[in-house]
């Protein structure tokens, strides 16, 4: 009976396809085989055009128009003046001399934050993946624990850490209970910056760990067995076998990590609001404040800043594609 039911469902599912056969035959005749795939790609192309290309195009339009009006038709053309305003600076190393000093402070912060965060994240993710690739007890449980923060909303992650790190938070409570003075974890610029790195690593490390774990598991076991027979030390096995064979995956993780790090916003926005002062202000935070949080809203400047950021990310994506191709060729 079940088999009959399955057959019936299969027949019913095939009906629309059969009904379309004459149409397909006609399209094939009119367009030819070489053009026919475009018909199948059309729905996806339309979706990409509507939800990806059109917003980018609108962003370009906003970036070359001014005023606080929302409708593009009501916004006067200002050429590249939004870009010029962003780039206007006497000395880029001293943001206070720039027309939009907060943007350059955000750029300066990102130049420190991104390398530091990516290096720490990949390092921790790699160590964790190596540990969880071994045949240890409760391996599945630990994999779940390390991956768990990835499933949480960034706002939940940040709020959790705010409760832990604030003046009367859990961390200071523990310090107080064991006789230490309370520490201002988030009111000191240096400490707030380091905690921002820590929290973002904690939140995203699991994702990269899983990718690296998959990479580690794809390395053939017989290579390790051969190394074992040759009595190679664990360090030598790691540097001569694991790392070289993991290189393509590491490259992907590196590029994805950089892109994600440059885009960092939500966790830090909730954790520190970009402060103290501007110590943890990142580029996306600047874009958000300029375009959405501050009245009057400067959509043009926010669009220009986001396109400049997009250009940087585009370059990284290009680099990723080139490197990953290189990795495959190797």
């Amino acid at each position: 009976m079940i088999r009959n039911g399955a057959q019936w469902i299969g027949t019913a599912a095939a009906l629309p396809a059969r009904a379309l056969e004459p149409l397909m035959a006609w399209l094939q005749k009119v367009l030819g085989m070489s053009r026919l795939p475009w018909i199948f790609l059309l729905p996806n192309l339309l979706i990409i055009a509507l939800f990806s290309l059109l917003p980018v195009l609108m962003n370009v339009v906003y970036s070359v128009t001014g005023s606080d009006n929302l409708y593009p038709s009501e916004r006067p053309f200002v050429g590249l003046s939004n870009y010029a305003t962003l780039l206007e600076c006497e000395n880029y190393l001293q943001p206070s001399t720039c027309s939009r000093d907060l943007f350059w402070r955000a750029v300066g912060n990102a130049l420190v934050f991104v390398p530091a965060q990516v290096v720490v994240m990949i390092g921790v993710a790699l160590i964790t993946a190596l540990a969880l690739n071994r045949n240890i007890r409760a391996r599945g449980f630990f994999r779940g624990i390390f991956f768990f923060p990835v499933m949480l909303s960034p706002v939940v992650v940040a709020m959790t850490w705010v409760w832990l790190l604030q003046r009367d938070g859990a961390l200071n409570g523990i310090l107080g209970a064991i006789g230490f003075d309370r520490v201002s974890w988030l009111t000191d610029p240096g400490r707030a910056f380091k905690w921002s790195i820590f929290v973002t690593v904690w939140a995203h490390m699991g994702f990269y760990m899983v990718i690296l774990l998959a990479g580690l598991q794809s390395i053939p076991a017989d290579i390790y067995e051969a190394a074992k027979m040759d009595r190679a030390s664990p360090w030598r096995v790691f540097t001569r076998i694991t790392l070289p064979l993991l290189k393509p995956v590491l490259l992907v993780v590196f590029i994805l990590g950089v892109i994600r790090s440059v885009q960092t916003f939500d966790e830090i926005y909730v954790l520190t609001g970009g402060g103290p002062g501007t110590a943890t202000k990142m580029i996306v935070h600047y874009i958000y404040e300029t375009g959405f949080a501050v009245m009057p809203r400067n959509y043009g400047l926010a669009a220009a800043a986001s396109l400049m950021l997009g250009l940087v990310l585009f370059l990284f994506t290009g680099l990723q594609m080139k490197l990953s191709k290189g990795g495959r060729d190797a």
Binding site: S184, G273, G275, P276, G277, T278, T280
Partner: peptide
């Protein structure tokens, strides 16, 4: 510092 000194923007 927890109010004006702890957050930015």
């Amino acid at each position: 510092m927890d109010l004006w000194g702890a957050v930015g923007g």
